[in-house]
């Protein structure tokens, strides 16, 4: 954040004291709010003449002492989520690569239909795709979840890669061609590796989205973390554990997603030091902005191409 420092004078002692005081005051207010929520949850409640224990009462958490519960959460729940996410991630990257090549093809007969299909897939909810595959192709829930996630994220990754390809300096392609490479050779050996590396942080950020979206499998009946904790276990052990199971599911999702996000950030730093020095941070300036910038650059270079060939 370099902007606010430019926006106003460097704060003097009074302004700094004021900011410190307001910082402490709001901090106390936020903490008080959080404590209030915690206390409300912890307080025992009256319901229809029976006093229910508070939500942090040991009787609401004792199921987690049972290793069988954890076994089920980890192996069936997390395992189901991760296996769907991993399969879909690999397939989505492959599909994305293929789509980006088709989309930036020289032949209009390939390029235009691909663009239409991409637009169609990107504008549709993943959930509807899952339902479509489940009902029309009559597959199992796993195949439906993986196929829908692959299609949707493959389309988005493909679009990001295409933007990366188009935003490369034209000289790269010209140099490849002038060395006697065929267009496809130049694309695969010269341009594509650069585009892929530049867009890698965006691709990983997209994989975080994919991991989150596996939870949609809950709605179409795929057995993953959410279904195991909130549906199977909560039904089996009784509804009084519902809140506890929710907290555990939330924490597990956060662990998985935050570590993948952290990996994306680390990756962007690492690739930045190696390549041209243009740094892409997938989380900080907002992913949408990055894709927007890349595709804007792509359009600009396309426009330049058109101008040069005229």
């Amino acid at each position: 954040m370099s902007v606010p420092i430019v926006l106003f004078d460097v704060p003097g002692p009074r302004a700094r004291r004021l900011s410190l005081i307001s910082s402490i005051v709001t901090g106390v207010l936020i903490l008080a709010g959080l404590t209030w929520i915690a206390l409300t949850l912890a307080a025992p409640r009256e319901s229809g003449g029976i006093t229910l224990p508070g939500y942090f009462d040991p009787s609401r958490w004792d199921v987690f002492a049972d290793p069988a519960v954890w076994e089920r959460i980890i192996f069936v729940g997390v395992g189901g989520t991760l296996s769907a996410a991993l399969t879909a991630a690999v397939l989505a990257i492959v599909l994305g690569i293929i789509l980006s090549l088709l989309r930036s093809s020289e032949i209009a007969w390939i390029r235009v239909p691909t663009a239409v299909v991409l637009e169609f897939v990107r504008g549709m909810p993943v959930l509807l795709m899952m339902l479509f595959i489940l009902l029309v192709l009559n597959t199992g829930a796993f195949v439906a979840v993986v196929a829908a996630l692959t299609l949707y994220n493959g389309a988005l990754i493909g679009e990001a890669l295409r933007a990366g390809l188009a935003s490369l300096p034209r000289g790269q392609r010209e140099a490849g061609l002038s060395l006697g490479m065929r267009p496809l050779q130049s694309k695969m050996l010269v341009e594509f590796p650069q585009a892929f590396r530049q867009m890698l942080p965006i691709i990983v950020a997209q994989l975080v989205v994919l991991l989150k979206d596996t939870s949609l499998g809950f709605i179409v009946g795929y057995v993953e973390l959410l279904r195991v904790t909130m549906n199977q276990l909560a039904t089996f052990y009784g509804n009084r554990y519902l809140f506890s199971f929710f907290v555990v599911a939330l924490v597990l999702y956060l662990i998985m997603n935050l570590s993948l996000s952290r990996f994306a950030r680390w990756l962007s730093k690492r690739t930045a030091s190696k390549s041209s020095g243009k740094r892409l941070d997938p989380t900080d300036p907002g992913q949408a902005m990055l894709v927007a910038q890349a595709s804007a650059a792509a359009r600009q270079s396309e426009a330049n191409d058109g101008f040069a060939s005229r």
């Binding site: 949850l41 939500y55 975080v208 989150k212 979206d213 596996t214 939870s215 949609l216 809950f218 709605i219 959410l226 909130m230 509804n239 519902l242 809140f243 929710f246 599911a249 939330l250 999702y253 956060l254 997603n257 935050l258 996000s261």
Partner: peptide, 21 residues
């Protein structure tokens, strides 16, 4: 926190856990 929570979980909280609370 919110960006890394799946939407399904958020809606689950609002639709099922909140009434339960």
């Amino acid at each position: 926190l919110v960006r890394n929570t799946p939407l399904t979980l958020v809606l689950f909280f609002c639709a099922i856990v909140l009434p339960y609370l």
